[in-house]
Design a protein around this nucleic acid. Structure first.
Lengths: 206, 206, 206, 206
DNA sequence: CATGAATGAGAATTCATTCAT
DNA sequence: CATGAATGAATTCTCATTCAT
């Protein structure tokens, strides 16, 4: 009779725990964060956390999964409303510029730590490789689309540029997660946008 | 009683330990690497390591210091022999393309983990901020030099471009440290070089 | 959820651990006693002890604190029921004669080791100095009271005699903690009582 | 040909090491003092110490032995020159009052720690019991001598008073080793002398 | 003989995880 | 379901002692 309420409640709890974990992982790092840290931050008991997640690592993995899913959904959703490749690419730059800096900084720290972490665990590595390929292709396709439509020059490899985009994103976010200078982040990210576009829009020497 | 031999020996040992630590940290991550791992890898006793370093963290810090010093020296040395800003910038791209990929991959993993790690320790953070500013300025100056000499367009901020360079470097190295696809690394790094140069060499719309 | 039971339970556990620690410290000495020794003696895991105390040193400190508090309370309590200084002083001799010898021996060993230990740690030293002054004054006041009431001769310094009392106590307890001859302890302690009283009751050569 | 020189040299070294050990043990306690501490304090190598002593414990034991021997010799020597029991007893009080306070304080700390330590090692305990009995008897005999000569009252047990003397000595020295108030030590030690003598000289109620 | 690097047995302490209440 | 005490494996670091140089 009350599965719905219970399920909602559980989903809510799960979500709260992930939030708390994100906060703590960002603050102290994954390994240095104890289950107790998370429990205390959330005013929960250690045991309660184990009701929702089977291990600390699972929290980590699901946290990253959720974030990736969320981000992917937002991007995919917006892409559908944007007719041109140029607009899609501009949207991405805007997207990563406008999200709350503090939130991005937290996420950045946790995300890159997770990436390094995953590279040492076979199962995770396969998962992340997959996501990585997906992310590259996603942009690669936008580039290819722009090339087909005559928006972008055709003599560049769409996959390379897709890769470059994420390199710029990850380089920037890593730098500014660690350094924390928002002003500089905004400026450089804008410069990056300009550079990438100027590169894609350049007409190869006729 | 024979300080010369002893000092050389000690320096050699120290260096070996750092090498072993780099290997292990790259393999398992800093936190997951135990002193025992390093000792076993080097066929040493745990205690021996403490003759040369006072803590695991000190190994980490000195390892990173050594690498930074080494890299800085190489770059500074080459810069002196290169007359133009363009050549200097090309050298940097070549430098990061040609170093042994495996070595760079190892270093990358350890280096970015260290960066995240340092962002949670005040003393380390100050140190890294300092190095960061230095690195940005170093390239910024090359850009400025190129602008003064008429090599590069003048309507871009030298510091932003310095920042962009390191973002490209760190983004690339992080990606390929984690992903490990050397071919792709080479390709994308070349694309990045082309993009940055095309950006700097563009004549602003007359 | 059931704080009353839990709190009592915890207090009981804490107390048990202190008891176990006293036993082990007396047996092997503080430094030579490992947390494992205490845990094994109590049929507990090492970790459990850290639920109640944050370090081995804290166990030591709290153990001594508890003992001091307990002893002080007993003495203070009795003092209130005893009208004359002479009776108070006699009570003290009786008090230290009648407590279980084995218990006193244990306590003595641990206590004097702690005293030496504390003299090498600034914070502890301050604490112990304070207690020391308190202990001296406590007896000093009894002496002074006796002098005012005409029980004791007036030409001795009350503080010196207070000090002498504790010197006799600590000298005796140290000797017999180490030597362990109860009979001799009883005899000498009685002799000490007689000597001190004969000293205090002596009419200065009229 | 050079055994004499070598032996002297070795004896000198041994002695220096014991001195250094005394200093370090007094400063940090026996267990907390490392062989390295002693070596560094003496500008020696760890190995060198092991040429003269087979273990840290042996240093401890021999240090205490030396001190005891030295003290016993001094006392025995003086006793021979002093004709009356009263003078002998006065000499003892003077002896423990006049030795350098700092030196006594050092010795006190190390000595009482050793005593407690010895009580946990069977072989050492036997040794110390023996010395203890000797010390008591030594004074006991002085008392008995005084009683025979009519200097001291005869209704007290000579062994008890011998014990009392050492109790006063050890209580005082322990207190002041730990507390370090020289002025108070002098005052109280004088008071103790007076008390003991007044006790011994009292004519039992005729 | 002197040295001090190396050894390795231990110590304190931490923390993910379990489970009785 | 929630709790948090208990567990115990794992980790860092120490130090007496040895021994090659």
């Amino acid at each position: 009779m009350s599965p719905k309420v219970t399920d909602e409640y559980k989903e809510e709890k799960r979500s709260q725990i992930l939030e708390g974990a994100l906060h703590c992982f960002a603050l102290k790092g994954y390994q240095a964060t104890t289950i107790n840290d998370i429990a205390q931050y959330l005013n929960l008991s250690k045991g309660a956390i184990y009701t929702y997640f089977s291990s600390k690592e699972e929290i980590y993995i699901q946290l990253m999964e959720e974030q990736t899913r969320h981000s992917n959904n937002e991007i995919r959703g917006q892409f559908q409303t944007l007719p041109t490749a140029e607009e899609k690419l501009h949207f991405l730059f805007r997207y990563f510029r406008q999200r709350s800096f503090n939130c991005m900084r937290q996420l950045g720290k946790v995300y890159y730590e997770f990436w390094l972490y995953s590279s040492r665990k076979d199962e995770l590595q396969r998962l992340m490789d997959h996501r990585y390929q997906h992310a590259i292709s996603q942009i690669g396709e936008v580039i290819a689309e722009g090339q087909r439509n005559g928006e972008f020059r055709r003599d560049v490899n769409d996959q390379f540029v897709g890769s470059l985009f994420w390199i710029l994103r990850d380089g920037s976010l890593l730098h500014f997660s660690v350094i924390g200078d928002e002003q500089m982040y905004q400026n450089v990210w804008r410069e990056a946008e300009e550079m990438l576009f100027s590169y894609l829009l350049t007409t190869p020497d006729a």
